[in-house]
Computed example of a mutant assay.
Amino acid sequence: MNINVFAQEYLRAAVRKPSQFLQARPARLCTICGYEGRFLDVGPRPEARCPNCSSKERDRIMGLYLRANRLNLTDKAVLHFSPERPFFRLWKDNPRYVAGDVKISKVANAVVDITNIQFEDDHFDYVICHHILEHVPDDAQGMRECFRVLKPGGTAFFSVPLDQSRAETWEPPADMPAAEIERICGWDHVRLYGRDFPDKLAAVGFDVDEIRFSTEDGDRSRLTEKHAFEPQGLDRLFVCRK
């Protein structure tokens, strides 16, 4: 058990929503750190966070895939955008791990713009990009750059908020106020992806597999976010190969 993280997460949860500890909760399993026990609420999302490694739902989807396929990235050349804390802790000592963000961050070791990546062609074994593209005005350029820096035979992982009821991604009109866009799409999001998201990845050259988890895995490890934007299911991982 990671005592420091555990104590911080329980204290944060107790301050933000003490009433959650009055409710009986089943034991959940974290796919990243292996912790089994009570998960903590995050805002309106019940049982969203693992108290042992701070993983969220979207992190555990990635963790489930890595475990199921016995993938170990600790010594690989990895480009990871806006890194999730549990993975940053696991991989930060790897000198080939680039934890990139558009600004200086405690969970990043490089400043990287996804639309203008500063590394040469065919550089990385893996690219990880979870919940980034919905913030990027030119998402197609970001996808092209990820494809460019990935080695032939390499793998890129993508996930975004998806509205499965939409066949096509919704792009707001140019004159729509930012507040209205955020009301529809979520905070700081610039579009709402539909079922055509894998087609967008394929258009830049990727071979795309859409990975879904079982109902049992989803419940056991809390893999789907539940929040105000109900149509945006987060139960898809897109595994892309070059």
Rank of each mutant, 00 (worst) to 15 (best):
I132S: 02
R183V: 04
E47L: 08
P152R: 09
A68E: 12
Q23F: 10
V98F: 06
A77W: 10
G205F: 11
C240S: 11
N109S: 09
S159A: 13
I104P: 03
N109M: 11
R60Q: 08
D196C: 01
P51K: 14
V112H: 02
E171N: 15
A108E: 00
M176N: 06
H80E: 11
Y65G: 01
D199W: 10
E134F: 04
P18L: 01
V160L: 04
K242P: 07
D199V: 13
I117K: 06
V239C: 13
K151C: 10
R60Y: 09
F147N: 01
D59T: 07
H130D: 08
Y10W: 14
R241A: 09
L73A: 08
D139H: 04
R166Y: 05
T155M: 10
F147H: 13
A24R: 14
R222P: 00
N109L: 07
C33M: 05
T31D: 10
Y65L: 05
H80N: 06
R12L: 05
F119L: 13
L71Q: 12
A14Y: 07
D235S: 09
A228Q: 12
D125E: 10
A174H: 13
L64C: 09
T115M: 11
F88R: 00
L150F: 05
A99L: 09
G154E: 05
C50Q: 00
E171W: 14
I181N: 05
Q20G: 02
K76C: 13
R89W: 04
V136A: 04
P86K: 09
L133D: 03
I104R: 15
G34N: 12
A13I: 05
V149E: 07
D138A: 02
N94P: 07
P231C: 05
A68L: 03
G154I: 03
T115F: 06
W170G: 04
L133V: 09
F81C: 01
D139I: 00
S54E: 00
P161Q: 04
L64P: 00
P177D: 10
P177V: 06
I104A: 14
R96C: 05
D196V: 04
V160Q: 02
P95C: 04
P86H: 09
M1Y: 07
I184D: 01
P173L: 12
G186F: 12
H189Y: 12
R49T: 15
E216Y: 07
P137F: 08
K242D: 07
D122P: 06
G233R: 09
L79P: 03
R220V: 10
H80Y: 13
F88S: 00
V239Q: 01
T215E: 13
L133C: 06
R212P: 03
